[in-house]
Computed example of a mutant assay.
Amino acid sequence: MMDRLRIDRFRIRPYDLPLRRDWRSARGGFQRRRGWLVCAETDGAIGFGDCAPLPAAGTENPESAESALSNACACAPGRSVGEILEMLDTGYAATPAARFALECALLDLLSQAEGVPLRRLLARDASDAVPVNGILGALASLTAADLQQAAEAGFRVVKIKVGVEEPASEIGRLKALAPFVPTDMRLRLDANGAWGFDEACRIIDRVAGLPIESLEEPLRIPDPNRLHALQERAGFPLARDESLAGLSADADLGGLGVRRIVIKPAVVGGLRSALDLSRRAATADIEVVVTGIVESAAGLWPTAQLAAATGSALPHGLATADWLAADLGVAPRLTGAHLSLSDRPGSGFKPHPDPNPE
Rank of each mutant, 00 (worst) to 15 (best):
K264G: 03
A57F: 09
P62L: 04
G193E: 07
P62K: 08
A45Y: 00
E358A: 12
E66G: 11
P179V: 13
D89M: 03
A129P: 01
R4Y: 06
A251H: 08
A138W: 03
N192H: 04
E114A: 15
S347W: 00
S347F: 00
P353S: 03
P315T: 10
A153I: 03
E213L: 07
I203W: 00
I263P: 02
D50G: 05
P351Q: 02
F180S: 15
H316I: 10
V116T: 09
L177P: 07
A321Y: 00
D354R: 03
A144S: 15
R186W: 01
L5D: 09
A145Q: 13
P55Q: 07
D89R: 13
E86S: 12
V38I: 08
T59A: 04
P77W: 05
V268D: 02
I171R: 11
A191V: 07
S342T: 14
G193C: 06
G78D: 06
N71H: 12
L109D: 07
A191H: 04
G58R: 01
V289M: 07
R4W: 07
V288Y: 02
A145F: 05
P222F: 01
I203Q: 02
V116D: 05
L174N: 03
S70R: 14
A129D: 13
L253T: 08
I46C: 13
C39R: 12
I293G: 08
Y15G: 06
G196I: 10
R32V: 11
A178V: 01
F349R: 10
L314E: 10
P211R: 00
S141W: 05
Q112M: 10
L177A: 08
P222R: 03
R20I: 15
R32N: 08
D146N: 10
V181G: 10
I221L: 12
L118V: 13
C104I: 05
R79E: 06
G257C: 08
T310P: 03
R13T: 14
P211N: 08
A326R: 13
F30E: 05
D184N: 12
G246R: 04
D343G: 09
S80E: 06
E165R: 11
R33H: 03
G270Q: 04
A251K: 03
